[in-house]
Each structure stands twice: as structure tokens, then as C-alpha cells.
């Protein structure tokens, strides 16, 4: 289980992140999870080996504001999320425009799930999520 999770919205994302920095928190990374209807984006912060997390629920198709203006280190992971999930990240300090890890010939949004295809039954490995 993940401890210390605070649910936040897109509007207050930047304020919440900015409030963490003066308290001595170190930005660890972000994790994006495709939950079918929406994306769960987790922001992990660390202080004294304790993780503090924000959970942002982002509707599919909505853009994500970048925190790389506040935390430069976030730009690597934000570019990765932009590549692998096809989420448009606005205001990146260095924008690779979806060509950070992938090339023109690679499949687009490889880590996204097609809605409704997510059938995972024990013992039936074949029908798991397909690449869009």
C-alpha cells in the first residue's frame, strides 16, 4: 500500500507542488497509470526516506500542466509520460514533442490501454492489454 497519498486536482497542482519545495522535499519522480477512463498521475516526494505522494486524476484527452518550471528535474519524466501515454504536457522547460524515447516509426502511446479490452483472467495471459 502507498502511504501519505493526497488527492489533488489539475487546478491546484502547481500550488501544491510549490508548497512542498520550501519544506525540504526532494522530487523523486512521477508515475502515470492508465486506469481505463482516466490517468492516475502520482507525484512522489521524499524527505528523510519517507515518501509523500500526490495523486492527480486526469481525464483522457486533457493536457497536463508541467511542473518543470518549478522543478527542472521533472522534465525528463514529463517528456517520458508525453511519449508513452500521449498526454500533452504544457509548458515544458525542454519539449521533445513526443520524440524523447520514441521515433516516428515507433507505435504511438504504447503504454495506453484501449478502453474495454482490459480482460485479464488468471491462466489466460494472451488477451491482456493491446497496443493501441
Amino acid at each position: 500500500m502507498i502511504n501519505n497519498v493526497e488527492n489533488i486536482t489539475v487546478d491546484c497542482l502547481l500550488d501544491k507542488v510549490a508548497s512542498k519545495l520550501p519544506l525540504g522535499f526532494r522530487f523523486v519522480t512521477m508515475t502515470c497509470v492508465d486506469c481505463g477512463e482516466h490517468f492516475d498521475i502520482l507525484y512522489h516526494f521524499d524527505k528523510n526516506y519517507e515518501l509523500t505522494n500526490f495523486r492527480l486524476s486526469l481525464k483522457k484527452g486533457e493536457p497536463l500542466p508541467s511542473i518543470s518550471g518549478l522543478i527542472f528535474a521533472a522534465l525528463v519524466v514529463e517528456n517520458e509520460i508525453q511519449d508513452l501515454f500521449g498526454i500533452k504536457v504544457n509548458g515544458l522547460a525542454l519539449d521533445y514533442e513526443g520524440r524523447f524515447l520514441l521515433t516516428e516509426t515507433a507505435p504511438e502511446k504504447p503504454l495506453c490501454r484501449v478502453p474495454g479490452v482490459m480482460i485479464v483472467e488468471a491462466g489466460k495471459p494472451a488477451a491482456a492489454a493491446e497496443v493501441k
Binding site: 519522480t29 508515475t31 497509470v33 519524466v77 485479464v120 491482456a128
Partner: peptide
Amino acid sequence: YLKGNGTDMLERLRVRTPTFANIP
């Protein structure tokens, strides 16, 4: 980051490796 759903398959596996953090 691991997310399971009670089946054999994991729903999501994410790895943040040290060099990824050391690029900036």
C-alpha cells in the same frame, strides 16, 4: 511502482532508475 489486481498479471509496473534521476 507496482499495481496488481489480484491476478497473475500486474496492471502496471514502473521503474525509476538512478541514472534517470542523475540526468538533470
